[in-house]
Measured scan of single mutants.
Amino acid sequence: RDEDEKEKIKEALKRGNEDKAKEIAKRANVSPEEYERLRKEAE
């Protein structure tokens, strides 16, 4: 379940949809550090 959320965040970031990614991260309680890591992976 947690991994699904992280995949959704990465997908949103790949599409350049940072607002959606942040919204998912907030809902999934993803830490800022984890969010940054996902953002780097998505580049």
Score class of each variant (00 low, 15 high):
E3W: 13
K26F: 04
E23S: 08
G16K: 05
S31Y: 03
Y35K: 03
N29R: 09
A12T: 04
K10A: 01
K14G: 08
K20E: 15
K20G: 09
E7F: 09
K26M: 09
K10V: 06
D4V: 11
A25F: 00
K22W: 06
K14T: 08
R15S: 15
R39F: 08
I24M: 05
K10Q: 00
E7W: 09
E41H: 04
R1G: 14
E11D: 14
E33V: 04
A42G: 05
D2E: 14
K40N: 11
K8N: 09
E3T: 14
R1L: 15
K40P: 02
E23V: 07
K22I: 12
D4K: 10
L13C: 04
D2K: 12
G16V: 00
S31N: 08
R1P: 15
E7Y: 07
K10S: 03
I24W: 00
D19L: 11
P32V: 10
D4M: 12
K6R: 14
I9S: 01
E43C: 09
K10P: 00
R37G: 07
A42F: 07
I9G: 02
N29C: 05
D19H: 11
A42R: 02
D2R: 12
A25M: 05
E18I: 14
R37L: 07
E5H: 15
D4F: 10
A25E: 02
E23K: 07
E34T: 00
E3K: 13
A12C: 05
E41S: 06
E23R: 07
A42D: 03
E36I: 02
E11F: 00
K20I: 14
A25P: 01
K26D: 11
R37Y: 07
R27K: 13
A28F: 05
S31R: 05
E18S: 08
G16M: 04
D2N: 13
R27H: 09
A42T: 07
A21H: 01
A21P: 01
R15D: 15
A12R: 02
E41N: 05
E23T: 07
E41C: 05
Y35G: 02
E23M: 04
A12Y: 06
I9D: 02
A25N: 02
R39Y: 07
A42H: 04
D4P: 09
E34D: 11
E36T: 00
R1V: 15
E3H: 13
E34K: 00
R15H: 15
I24T: 04
S31M: 06
E7D: 10
L13E: 03
K26A: 14
D19Y: 04
N29A: 08
N29H: 10
K6V: 11
E33A: 06
A21R: 00
E5C: 08
E36Q: 04
E5R: 07
E34R: 00
K40M: 12
A25R: 03
K26T: 11
E5N: 10
A42V: 14
P32I: 12
Y35A: 03
P32N: 12
R39I: 10
K8E: 11
D4A: 11
A28Q: 08
A25S: 06
I9Y: 01
E7Q: 14
N29M: 09
E41D: 08
E41M: 09
K26P: 02
E18H: 12
A21V: 02
E43L: 13
A21G: 03
R1K: 14
K6F: 14
K26L: 09
D4S: 13
K22A: 09
E41L: 09
A25W: 00
E33C: 05
N29G: 15
K8R: 11
E18Q: 09
K10L: 10
K14I: 13
R37W: 07
E3Y: 13
N29W: 02
R15L: 14
E41A: 09
E18D: 09
E18N: 08
E43S: 09
Y35S: 03
E36K: 00
K14S: 09
R1W: 14
E5P: 15
R39M: 10
D19T: 12
K26E: 13
Y35V: 07
N17G: 05
E43V: 11
R27L: 08
N29F: 06
E7S: 12
L38V: 04
Y35N: 03
E18F: 10
D19R: 11
E7N: 13
N17F: 14
A42I: 12
S31G: 12
E43M: 14
A21Y: 01
P32S: 11
K22V: 09
D2C: 11
E5V: 15
I24S: 03
E36C: 05
K22M: 14
K14Q: 09
R1E: 14
K6L: 15
K10H: 02
R27C: 06
D4L: 12
P32H: 11
E18R: 06
A12S: 08
A42W: 06
E11S: 07
K22P: 02
R15G: 15
K26G: 08
K40D: 11
E23I: 08
E3C: 10
R39T: 09
E36M: 02
D4R: 12
K10E: 03
K40Q: 14
D19V: 13
K6E: 08
L13R: 02
V30F: 07
I24G: 02
S31F: 04
K22T: 08
I24C: 04
S31E: 08
K40W: 09
K10N: 03
E11T: 05
E23N: 07
K14A: 11
E34Q: 03
P32M: 11
K20R: 12
K20A: 14
N17P: 03
K8I: 07
A28W: 00
R27Y: 01
E5Q: 11
N29I: 05
E18P: 08
L13H: 04
G16T: 01
K26H: 10
K26S: 11
E7K: 13
L38A: 03
K20D: 12
E34P: 00
E33L: 05
K8S: 12
A25V: 05
I24R: 03
N29L: 07
K6H: 14
G16S: 04
A25T: 03
D19P: 09
A28K: 06
Y35L: 11
A12Q: 11
A28L: 10
R15T: 14
N29Y: 04
D2T: 13
A42Y: 07
R15C: 08
N17I: 05
E34A: 02
K8L: 11
R27W: 00
K26V: 12
E43P: 04
E7V: 12
K26W: 00
I24D: 03
A21S: 04
G16F: 04
E7H: 12
E11N: 09
N17W: 13
A12W: 05
P32K: 11
E18V: 13
N17E: 15
E36R: 00
Y35Q: 03
A21L: 02
I9R: 00
Y35F: 15
A12I: 04
G16W: 01
A28T: 08
K8Y: 06
K14E: 07
E11M: 04
R39D: 04
R37V: 07
K10Y: 04
K6Q: 08
N17R: 07
G16C: 05
E23L: 04
A28P: 01
D2P: 13
K6W: 15
A12D: 04
N29D: 09
R1M: 14
A12G: 03
L13G: 02
E41Q: 10
K10F: 05
D2M: 14
K40S: 12
R39W: 07
L13Q: 03
A12M: 09
K20L: 15
E3R: 13
E41W: 05
R27G: 09
G16H: 07
E5Y: 15
N17V: 05
L13A: 03
Y35T: 03
E7A: 13
K6D: 06
K20P: 03
K14F: 02
L38D: 02
P32R: 10
E33R: 03
E7M: 13
I9N: 03
Y35D: 03
D19M: 11
K8A: 15
E36W: 00
K14M: 10
R27N: 11
I24P: 01
R15Q: 15
K40G: 10
E41I: 08
S31H: 06
I24H: 05
E34L: 00
V30Y: 04
E41R: 05
L13D: 03
A21N: 01
K26N: 10
I9P: 02
E7L: 14
K40I: 12
S31Q: 07
E36Y: 00
E34M: 01
R39L: 11
K6T: 10
Y35H: 02
A28S: 10
D4H: 11
R37A: 10
R15E: 15
I9L: 08
L38M: 08
A28N: 12
K14P: 03
Y35P: 00
E43H: 10
A25H: 02
K22Y: 05
S31K: 06
N17L: 14
R1T: 15
K14D: 05
L13N: 03
E43T: 09
E43K: 09
E33D: 12
V30T: 06
E3V: 13
V30N: 01
A21Q: 01
D4W: 12
E23Q: 10
D19E: 14
K10T: 05
K14H: 09
K8H: 08
G16A: 05
R27E: 11
A25D: 01
V30L: 13
